[in-house]
Design a protein around this nucleic acid. Structure first.
Lengths: 351, 351
DNA sequence: TTGTAGGCGTTATCAA
DNA sequence: TTGATAACGCCTACAA
């Protein structure tokens, strides 16, 4: 009774059942129909007795079907990514796939390394939520026939499907809401747009949007990595600036909302009198008085759509059809942080 | 230029480099030293030209080394689990392992299914943060020689290593803090302990702890799944109960803290005048005025320790040594929610 | 230093 | 309905 009661193999089961590898293989593949009732029972019994489970490694080797979906995540601690991952996982499971997650910590080097690993395991499809620089590698992967889905952001030249938010529309929703609520002077805070397409779209739309609406506005792209000094300065300057219209801050995503809320709280700013609104709904947004207004992304749906996309390409062999983009609408969740203390609702004013 | 520029294989590289499989294998294994400089260059060139990457499936098949670590998570959306996962991931990566994550949604059936999958891919080690019921399966796995590490909770009969919080000590810290802060009547809220050892330990320690300290206290185990009615009732009753000492709530984990905070806010309770404290530090705890006091778990360290444990057993072949338990200390982060409005600090009182 | 031959556990192709 | 037998891509004695 030393150690390895060695995992049993196909041959052993075959032997124990007094039959051949082929039949056992058929039993565990999808061809039980072709086996006589009696043989099926003998195999089932033997397999159970030996505690046999097919070796996916071997399977993947022969058939080329690894039954693996890979996911490249820039930051596994980002609630958005996790929420999306949850959607992805459920669909994978429902279709008999397993998920292999690789977290890249926003580091291009790790991204490249992980991508290599994922392909080494012959993932059949890949979901990417990162923006390092392995464009070339990704493109090659796509060429080799591995379906690719980008989540939340496009990637330069990579010919892949994309699932994400309708960013432009979301910004419009935000601006409309803020304007209706009575805010006229806006500060938009984002992380550096760098290569993240969604950030770029949001930023540009903000610029256009305020112009169209005759709002006063200004946008800052900040790292937020180190201390919040930069952010504090920016916000301080914004608050101090002379102006007549009520002021509001718009946060480009959940991380920004968190950082901005911290700063505002330190500065003892009353939310509402200075407006605050963010893209991404977080579990605590309702808890910070008087509640932070957000635009919720349908993260679960986004994750599900991503994998469904993948599977479709995988199974229907429309592998070469042109890239498809799926954009979801954000849902406005209005809270106190965009309610002006003594605000006259303009729609109520007599003409 | 139709489709599959077929991934190239070892033999092809060998051929292109004018050498044998063996040498190429050595090149990509850890035996470059044994090859002449010139051969190395030829192989490198050929491999690069063909875009060759070793097939992990095939590798895993022969050597039995899948280079895969599996993780079974009960709830991938739980911030605690994600934080731990982050630690796990980094160590895996540092040692050339990949992580395969399986989310079980707290469903025993899925747990079993996923466990089977993970073993089908021949993960070399398994981290478990779930408490369904596949004790038997897990035990078998362990017997078969796959190292196992339990995170946060023990599992019945399974002979596995365990990494988690020093739960008893954490509760002591909490009680000490609350008592010192002047609270004398406590309500402990937890999810049902069911099979989760950490929950059980915390609950029991709470019961003992209040007795030892002469505090008045009461504990509730609630599902929190559906609406918060149950919780609201419990808290309502607690607040209304006649008593002289200041009251405080102690939350057994982050999920509970979230739910409790919601209820308190709905009831317009001023935090501090009613104390609030929770195990698990969450990013928003500082943001809900006047700040929620927490006991932070060193999640990253816990994750790292888990994998390091695994790798040790894997490499040092101390596979059979008795299970080891590693307990980390929680760190108290005092905030306004446990500061009584007109509190006399007892340590300052003259004797 | 390099190469040959066999096998890992499975599926796929044929033949019986 | 069954069963030999040859791959799959790689690793590992063993030999040269």
């Amino acid at each position: 009774m030393n150690q390895n009661p060695q995992r049993s193999t196909l041959v052993e089961v075959a032997h124990a059942a007094g039959t051949s590898k082929t039949s056992v293989s058929r039993f565990f593949g999808d061809e039980r129909q072709r086996l006589s009732q009696e043989l099926q029972e003998r195999i089932a019994a033997a397999a159970k007795r030996l505690g046999y489970h097919p070796n996916q490694m071997a399977r993947g080797l022969k058939g080329g079907r690894s039954r693996l979906i890979g996911m490249l995540v820039a930051d596994i601690r980002n609630p958005y990514s996790v929420a999306v991952m949850h959607g992805i996982e459920s669909v994978c499971q429902a279709h008999g796939y397993s998920l292999m997650v690789a977290n890249t910590n926003n580091d291009p080097a790790q991204e490249r390394r992980h991508l290599e690993l994922l392909t080494a395991y012959r993932v059949e499809g890949l979901v990417v939520n990162a923006a390092g620089s392995p464009d070339r590698e990704l493109a090659k992967l796509a060429e080799q026939g591995t379906p690719l889905v980008l989540v939340d952001r496009e990637l330069g030249e990579v010919p892949a499907d994309m699932v994400g938010l309708d960013d432009a529309r979301a910004i419009d929703q935000a601006l409309d809401h803020l304007q209706t609520a009575g805010y006229g002077e806006l500060l938009y805070v984002s992380k550096p747009t760098s290569r993240v397409s969604s950030r770029r779209v949001r930023l540009e739309r903000f610029q256009h949007g305020i112009a169209e609406r005759g709002l006063v506005g200004e946008a800052h792209c900040l790292t937020l990595d180190a201390d919040a000094a930069e952010l504090d300065d920016a916000i301080g300057a914004f608050l101090v600036r002379p102006g007549t219209a009520p002021k509001a801050l718009l946060c480009a995503n959940g991380q920004v909302t968190l950082a901005v809320t911290r700063v505002l709280q330190q500065r003892n700013v009353t939310l509402g009198s200075v407006g605050l609104m963010g893209i991404d709904e977080l579990e605590w947004c309702a808890l910070v008085p008087p509640g932070i207004t957000t635009l919720a992304q349908p993260t679960d749906a986004i994750g599900r759509a991503a994998v469904e996309n993948l599977l479709q390409r995988l199974e229907s062999s429309q592998r070469t059809s042109p890239p498809r983009r799926t954009h979801y609408q954000a849902q406005l969740i209005p809270r106190g942080s965009t309610r002006l203390p003594f605000h006259h609702d303009r729609s109520q004013e007599s003409p």
